[in-house]
Structure formats: C-alpha cells, structure tokens
Design a binder for these strands. Structure first.
Lengths: 140, 140
DNA sequence: TATTTATTGCAACAATGTTGCAATAGACAA
DNA sequence: TTGTCTATTGCAACATTGTTGCAATAAATA
C-alpha cells in the first residue's frame, strides 16, 4: 500500500469505479501526510475545482475505511481525522500549541502490555489508539 | 480527590455554588465508575427527578473540566465521555462487542517512551491518551 | 453507442455542542 | 428570617458533524 496506483488498481479489481471525486480524495489523503478532517477534505476538493456534497465525502470516507485504505483517528480536539493506512504502525505527536501532527514509530512495547492485559484481565486486545499531546520542537 | 465531600468543599472554597444540578452531576459521575456521555448524564439527571437543559449540562461539564474534577475521553465510537479524575493514572479496555469499559493501570512504560520521544523528536509530551479495543472476558 | 448499476446530489433529519440574554436561586450579611 | 449580589440556569437560536432515502448521473463494459 505504498503506491497510489496500487490503490486505484485494487479498487477497480474489486468491481468499483474510479470516479473523479474518489481519485481526488485518495490523492488528497495520499499527498497530505498529516491528519485531515472530513470538512478539510471537502475544502481541498473544492479548491482543486471539484465540488462534492458533504454526503458524498462521508460516504466515500466510509468506503475507504471499509477497504482499509484509510483509517480514522480521534484526537483531543473532538474532531475525527483520516489518514492513509501506512505499512508501518505508528502513533501521533499532537502539538497543543500549533496543532501540528507528527508520526512516531514505537517498537512493540505495547504488544507486551497487551499480552499482560490478556493474562491479567482476560481481555483480548485487538486494536489500540495512542496519541501524545505536548509541545513540538518549534513551540517548546 | 477520593472523597466527594472534598470536591464539594473545594468548589465552595473557590467561590462557586453547590447547586442541585452540580451536586447531582458530580454524584452521578462519582458513583458511576464507567464512562458517561453528556446525554447519558442528562438522562440520569432526569431519572433522578432533576431535569436540566442540555446547555446546563455542557456548561457544567466545562466547569468541572476546568476545575480538574473530571476529564474527557474520546473513544472510537465518536462520542465524548467523561469520568471523575482519579488519583491513579489509568487507561481503558473497551469491549467492541458489549461496549463495556474497564480500567487498567500500566506502570510507567509510557513515561520511558516519552523520554525517548523528547530525545529523538524534541517533542515535549505533556499528556497522552491510550485506549485498548477488543473483547472482554465475557465476549471472547 | 447502449446498458448496467455504482456513485452522486439533494432534501430532510438527528445528535452534539455553543452563544446571548433574561430569569432564577445559592450564599452570605444584616 | 429577609434582602442582596451574582453565579447559575433555561430558552431560543444557531453551527457543525454525520446519516438516510430517493431520483439523477456517470463510470465501465459489451
């Protein structure tokens, strides 16, 4: 899932259509390495000359989520953000001053915790969300 | 912050009033050890005979957040939940089948990661959010 | 070019959250 | 107990996010 053309191909092979809006949305999410909200995506679409209804954007996000092309992230500002699924599992460093977001890769420390949770609480962890909030290099 | 009466006292010492709704909301959040949404809190209020406007509930939640009496948690169902601030830092195990939520205490594993983040990315972590999703003991 | 149906836009709705303003009710003093 | 002050509340009105049904449109293939 590194190349945008692989994504396009996969969608077609699954019997779906490569519409202008779909291609543009994937392109926007692919190009922009930070987190984007539904309304931000919609704004970028219209900036690039493609006006899409709110409904369409949400439905397309649902489609891309289902296809595991993007994933949803909720951070402390109460909004829902989306990002392209990347091969490397990562977390986010959210600057509470300038709102910038960086990615951070963290080894398998959590995996060990999850094993412990299973032993201790009999709870089978299938996924987790971890975000760090603080001050980025520039805002410190 | 273990005793509800300490909370009441602190509020009065700060020059604020102990209204029926305020006391009831703190009582509800204090009694219920799981996460509650704004509308759930409002429902519980009216069940206990206190009808409060939506606005009032949100304003009171804002007040309690400011006073650091409660904190906000956002989990993957897109809702915002609240819980009493407890002395022990903990995380949540959210069952994706029955929606139950348990707390889990995790030592200082993340602290070590946060030091590493500072050294590596020059990002000063001030807070984090970590939730685990999976199947609880009963739903496995 | 014609056909099929996935995708889109529109209208209408639901839930969550916010703001301004006038009315109400805690807390305290007399 | 009563009066005063002002923190708190309710109401109306609004903004944002997200969803659903249905008819119109436009990709993909023959």
């Amino acid at each position: 899932m590194l190349d945008i053309d692989n994504i396009f191909e996969k969608i077609k092979l699954d019997g779906h259509r490569l519409t202008k809006i779909r291609k543009a949305m994937i392109g926007i999410l692919f190009a922009d390495k930070c987190l984007l909200s539904a309304s931000e995506i919609r704004t970028r679409l219209s900036v690039s000359g493609l006006s899409a209804d709110r409904t369409t954007v949400y439905r397309e996000l649902g489609f891309l989520l289902e296809k595991n092309i993007i994933k949803e992230i909720r951070i402390a500002d109460r909004k829902t953000y989306y990002e392209i699924v990347s091969p490397e599992h990562h977390h986010h460093l959210v600057c509470t001053k300038c709102n910038s977001v960086q990615e951070i890769v963290m080894g398998n420390h959590l995996k060990r915790q999850e094993d412990r949770i299973y032993k201790k609480a009999r709870f089978k962890v299938l996924a987790h969300s971890l975000e760090f909030y603080g001050l980025c290099r520039n805002c410190r």
